[in-house]
């Protein structure tokens, strides 16, 4: 990993009416790393993704991607610059086939590929995520783990520099989690930077280079997985969620 910075989030706040979902958050991503973003439900993780990908304008603050201020760009321009994302609640394009879903991702992604090229890319990516046998099925017909793979494949096909993954492991069984982790590690090997939200502590601790913790919209901790699991503020933030707190504690003891 080199230390070149790819994304700088600078003091970003997002309000919904009276609610401050993201509160003066700053963070930085380095080229090629996996940064884990954790925090209790409602902490503002997905909202931060929505701001970075241009779905919402921030209420205040700025963010730069590869040296360019992208704060006020519409979502599609941000996507073209090389940021792709998955959605926590999967959004398959139901009436299109799996191949068409992923082809569309490649077509309109960073490389702005032609339809023919995009289809080649889509096949390669579907192979990579293990969905190639299903390529001619309508996306609506997939089961949830498959839809999660589809979501990932569509984002990957865009050939992004930065990939935002929102709870891609949620709802998967242990085998599927292991498969998915392997896919993600391979993505990192292709030198794609990853910012991932995850609730599954052992998985995120294993795969992340660094971790950022959000609570009530604020960044409360940042550091290596080891630092974070031993941070009392983090344990405290998860007190409302004893299962996660336990998992955290278990990680800390190892």
């Amino acid at each position: 990993m080199n230390n070149e910075s790819i994304l700088q989030v600078d003091n970003v706040t997002k309000n919904f009416g009276g609610l401050t979902a993201v509160n003066h958050v700053s963070l930085e991503l380095h080229q090629g790393e996996i940064l884990g973003l954790i925090g209790p439900n409602g902490a503002g993780k997905t909202t931060l993704f929505n701001v970075i990908s241009g779905v919402f304008l921030p209420s205040s603050g700025h963010y730069r991607f590869m040296g360019k201020d992208i704060t006020n760009l519409p979502a599609y321009k941000i996507a073209r610059l090389g940021i792709a994302r998955t959605h926590q609640v999967v959004r398959p394009l139901n009436d299109l086939t799996v191949l068409e879903n992923v082809t569309a991702g490649a077509c309109f992604g960073r490389e702005n590929q032609s339809l023919g090229q995009a289809e080649q890319t889509a096949r390669a990516v579907l192979d990579q995520v293990g969905l190639i046998q299903k390529k001619d099925i309508l996306a609506a017909k997939l089961n949830l783990p498959e839809k999660k793979r589809l979501e990932l494949a569509r984002a990957l096909a865009a050939k992004p520099y930065l990939l935002l993954l929102d709870e891609v492991l949620a709802g998967l069984n242990p085998t599927e989690v292991a498969n998915m982790l392997e896919v993600i590690e391979n993505i990192q090997k292709d030198n794609i930077t990853i910012l991932m939200i995850e609730h599954l502590m052992h998985a995120i601790m294993r795969i992340s280079d660094r971790i950022v913790v959000l609570d009530y919209g604020q960044k409360i901790a940042e550091g290596t997985p080891k630092d974070v699991v031993n941070d009392p503020k983090v344990i405290e933030a998860y007190l409302g969620d004893p299962r996660v707190a336990q998992a955290l504690a278990a990680e800390g003891k190892e």
């Binding site: 241009g54 779905v55 979502a75 792709a84 959605h87 009436d95 569309a104 309109f108 865009a158």
Partner: peptide, 17 residues
């Protein structure tokens, strides 16, 4: 294809570029 993506999910279409 872009139009069909919009038909299926306009917000996703925007995020896809």
């Amino acid at each position: 294809l872009g139009l069909m993506v919009i038909r299926e999910d306009e917000d996703a279409a925007m995020v896809m570029g």
